[in-house]
Design a protein around this nucleic acid. Structure first.
Lengths: 218, 218
DNA sequence: GTCAATATTTTTGTATACAAGAATTGTGTT
DNA sequence: AACACAATTCTTGTATACAAAAATATTGAC
């Protein structure tokens, strides 16, 4: 329960940057936004500073706040790091995971499959997130888990795009199975490769998606 | 060159939290600090929000800002993540490192050795930092590099403590050599293990340091 | 007509003022 | 004496006011 207006505003602005309302490089005018949200500049500035910390906007002194969407190169870099973070989580989780978490993992996976059968992208997305969050937590390293969650969240809008690619959801399910198997059998290195590939492939898919998009605009 | 006062204040407060001027849980009074720095509350609040993003203080709504030093458990978790980040940097760098960077690495290492011979802790620390930063950069992934730098910086005050441990600097030098060898020969997995151990051992050293400290206060 | 220098406007950074919630103190009751 | 409730004080959150720097427009010279 955030009582501060700046928190609510920060979330709203974050949402708008994610869904593309504000394009890359766009300047976020303090007074205009303050009027729009019906607040003074003070809470709005605090919200902008928060976004700057997350890397969503860059604050140029005496110039203002500018939206900074990650470019293709930066995105691939972020996916690479995400792949490694997940791999580490998997390696630790393979040694530390609880029985209860394993059943929860199976449960999330079954819900994923059901969503695939129903062609329900939203539901698939939610269960997939749950799946990964369980692994983060089961790493037994809460700092690692929170870092993983943060990057996962940051990449959310870009992962979502490629879920629409033909056959991606089915392929993803197969990868999930390999991950669960590795964790169940307590094989750290298997979990590492399974998770690393699972995420890395997303980066590659995204890459092909980007080049397709580019070719279309030629 | 930061023109904004809030930046300067944030740095100063960060320094004070690092060097223990403000103990854990201490409340940072806005008006008192504002008077002390000779500014109004506005830039000071912005500085506090910045520190909150870095995790150095926690902002409780309507209650204020409280220093939150990481506890022993959290620190070990952070060292574990640092070890993995460095390992990933090393793996990528082993494949991508340039000849020039390799010579720079040798150079930094020689300067390290010279500092050890002179028993010059400060100088050792600076060159050691340079050594690691080169590896981060040579990962060829600038997002990864900046994440590694951020965590490295955050752990700085805790790493520093254990440099004073007897024989640690000499041991560290041997580990550096193993790292450089792996990078030079382009062996990713060797670089991974060398770097992971190099950092992980810092976490363990810190752990023993902590328990010694605890025993003394019993 | 173009370029440069200056004046004006706009916008950010900071200070101050005000409002609302939390902590504290004091008083009254049991 | 102890507890509860109310009034006061203190502190945070927000709005407004002001100052300084950057952007823009205007005027003048060539």
């Amino acid at each position: 329960m955030d009582t501060r207006r700046s928190d609510i505003i920060a979330e709203e602005l974050e949402e708008r940057i994610f869904n593309g309302t504000y394009p890359d490089g766009d300047r976020l005018d303090e007074v205009r936004l303050a009027k729009e949200f019906g607040v003074s500049r003070t809470p709005l500035r605090e919200a902008l500073q928060r976004l700057a910390r997350s890397g969503l906007v860059t604050l140029v002194p005496r110039r203002g706040a500018f939206v900074s969407q990650p470019g293709p190169v930066e995105l691939l870099e972020m996916f690479e790091v995400m792949a490694e973070l997940e791999a580490v989580c998997g390696r630790l989780a393979a040694m530390r995971i609880s029985d209860q978490a394993l059943t929860e993992l199976h449960e999330a996976n079954q819900n994923c499959q059901a969503a695939v059968d129903r062609q329900d992208v939203d539901s698939y997305y939610a269960e997939n997130e749950r799946f990964h969050h369980i692994i983060y937590k089961q790493s037994g390293n809460s700092f690692l888990a929170s870092e993983a969650r943060a990057l996962h969240r940051r990449l959310k809008p870009f992962r979502r795009q490629q879920l629409k690619l033909r056959g991606r959801m089915a392929q993803s399910m197969a990868e999930h199975k390999a991950i669960v198997d590795a964790l169940e059998q307590g094989k750290p290195e298997d979990a590492v490769t399974a998770l690393r590939n699972h995420v890395a492939i997303q980066g590659e898919k995204f890459h092909s998606l980007m080049s397709n998009l580019k070719r279309r605009t030629d």
